[in-house]
Write a protein that binds this DNA or RNA. Sequence first.
DNA 1: CGCGCTTGATCAATCGTTTGCGCAACCGGT
DNA 2: ACCGGTTGCGCAAACGATTGATCAAGCGCG
Lengths: 336, 336
Amino acid sequence: MAKLSDVAARAGVSVSAVSRVLSGDPAARVSEATRDRVRKAAAEVGYHPNFAGRALKLARTDVIALIVPDVTNALFTELTRGVEDEAVARGCVMLLARSEDMQPGGPMFDRLVGEGRVDGIVLQPRDGADPQELARTVGERAPLVTIHQRIPGASSVVVPDELAARRATEHLIALGHRRIGFAGGLAGSPTAQRRADGHLEALLRAGIAAAPELVTWRGYRESDGRASAAELLALPQRPTAIVAANVNAAIGVLAQARAQGLAVPRDLSVVAIHDAWTAEHTWPPLTCVRMPLYELGRTAVATLAEIVDGGAVVHRSVDDPEPVLVGRESAAAPRN
Amino acid sequence: MAKLSDVAARAGVSVSAVSRVLSGDPAARVSEATRDRVRKAAAEVGYHPNFAGRALKLARTDVIALIVPDVTNALFTELTRGVEDEAVARGCVMLLARSEDMQPGGPMFDRLVGEGRVDGIVLQPRDGADPQELARTVGERAPLVTIHQRIPGASSVVVPDELAARRATEHLIALGHRRIGFAGGLAGSPTAQRRADGHLEALLRAGIAAAPELVTWRGYRESDGRASAAELLALPQRPTAIVAANVNAAIGVLAQARAQGLAVPRDLSVVAIHDAWTAEHTWPPLTCVRMPLYELGRTAVATLAEIVDGGAVVHRSVDDPEPVLVGRESAAAPRN
DNA sequence: CGCGCTTGATCAATCGTTTGCGCAACCGGT
DNA sequence: ACCGGTTGCGCAAACGATTGATCAAGCGCG
């Protein structure tokens, strides 16, 4: 692999000159003729600055880690794209990690931050993770931006969960539903709380009395959604519609409905919060409220960059674009 | 962040001594007393060797990249786990590459290999990728192990595609099916070829005449499976069962069957090659042939390590555990 | 007592890059 | 011709870890 001194020799100048030219410092005093020769030589030998040498000198790796609970979750496609696009735009490479492996305090995590392999971390904590502990194990050791959730001392970025849930419920109300179940996330989870709030707000605005038994707190996974649906559909007076707080949970809701012989949307309407490509392939295709996850990813990286550069802790909500309803076929008017 | 000299100062020895103790070289001549003091001091200051310094000196980063066409594909969960486990076992960090940019030839890829950020690459080429071109853009620039597919000059690791397909078809034959469709992968793809071969082999062994119109070559995605099913189910004499060469395609097959009002498995049996958690949540849950993808991942990394250490190009097949049929509810005896 | 050998530890060079500083050469103005 | 001010470039010192070379003791042995 070509190094700086190779380029220097080829161009007949010193390594410092080459470094200055290639780093593109306009304040550097190098003649245009030399610049040309250097650039030409660099191109000829296919020079790329050695990562280790650079990182050692600059105390910076231009690597940021994105840690999510499960990389194969279709929901993370958009988030990941956003993170990566913004990272690339800032000249960084993204290191994608599964949080099972990257448990703060775990061996891999120690290597990442302890050995200085990354400049900063964008973390989406697992539901149920302890914020205090995360603050200790992560926040104190590396620049950190959390997603969906705040932890003490770290910046955070969220999406308008409450508004999205409200939109979902309002859509069902507009279709004529009055008894609407809510298949929510885990009780402790901040997003679960916000989404439940949004749902209740919609009911309130429509003058519909909220019934506690119509709200479950089981989680965002497929099996959680299925359990939620089983609970809601076992109610004496069955809901005619269910808002699933997560698109994966919604898939579980569909499965449970099918298992009970209920046709969607004829017997039960379903609206999910979040959109993902999987929602197009369910039966019926899921009506969703799409969240600005791509922008969430970009904003997270931008925020992280501020922290790395010494900026203050900040909390942002990504409100543009707004959550928008994507109508497919899982929601219809109730069959009186 | 604590460095070697900090530990040295605290233990009252030189940096070289510390380095030798901490690197665990048994040949190093250091007294047991000093070793203890060094280890104690290192633990006290929480020393982790600086990545950049180490990489610079050793010309090695202990990072391997796993490049797959699409990280959110549920199929990659197992593969990724295998790769990561083996990487960790060998003291490496796995860099999971997602974007189109990371694909060979993209700008990020150039940074990865050009800047020496990774020691080697485990690559699952996209279907339809040109082997010659990959050999040029990747194989010549970094140690490389490919998955599922060979490219010139690089080691490769595969799973027994042919056997798996044979098992799938044999299962349907055992259930009594005689007219069996095969929803295959892209025509040029080596795995598609091997799986189709296995399917035909099963028919041959059972003395069933193969009909070319019962084999499609559309690809592994959901939409491909759907198109394949549409094609097969439009045949004058409809197959009573379909083997989907990929679990994602199988989901598409289910969707198409449903769209045509066919009940699975009453009107149509479906068996998929590969297993993934998504297969448990379809309707009906998919009968699959599970492939040793976790072991594939581990073997790929082990093979890559050999190459990095100067080993010769080698081609392996992961045959343990064998492909095994996971019976769920999408396959049954044909009606009448 | 001196020699060779082993043991325990330090010195210093090295990896590739960046960057503050110094040093010529050259400019225009007196 | 002299001189302050620029311009163009190279020298050399970091950054943190590894490792061959080196060196001072200590020991056994004749």
